[in-house]
Amino acid sequence: MSEDHSLASEPNKAWYQTRIVLFIGGSIGVAILLVLVSMALYVSSGAAQLDLSRPGYQSVQNKVDPSDKFKSFPASGTVNEATIDQFQKLYQDQVNKVTATDAFNPDVLSNQALGIDAPGADQ
């Protein structure tokens, strides 16, 4: 009965003008729009740079340092000379891990390193 009713209510419309087609098309359109917005946020927020599950980065995924390895300093309690000494030791230990190695040195992208320097030119 209801099928008869819907057909009777849209007797002269082409198939692409029927409500069900417009509804499906609209849903797909909204879904595409939301995916585009979320992808834009994913890239612009910097989350993409932290995502090592992207294609091409799986080889280094297991080399990420676990965050719980980093010892934290208690945020409450009394403060005396020993507390400061304890902090200084902890701070120095953690800081040494990042300051000891050189990262993002621009020399690795030199023309010579990539073999694209001018023939006979010294950079």
Partner: peptide
């Protein structure tokens, strides 16, 4: 690829500090 790994680790360490 190596930069991505170094960035993730460094970003985490600097944030933890």
């Amino acid at each position: 690829t190596n930069d991505a790994l170094v960035y993730v680790n460094r970003n985490q360490s600097y944030f933890s500090i």
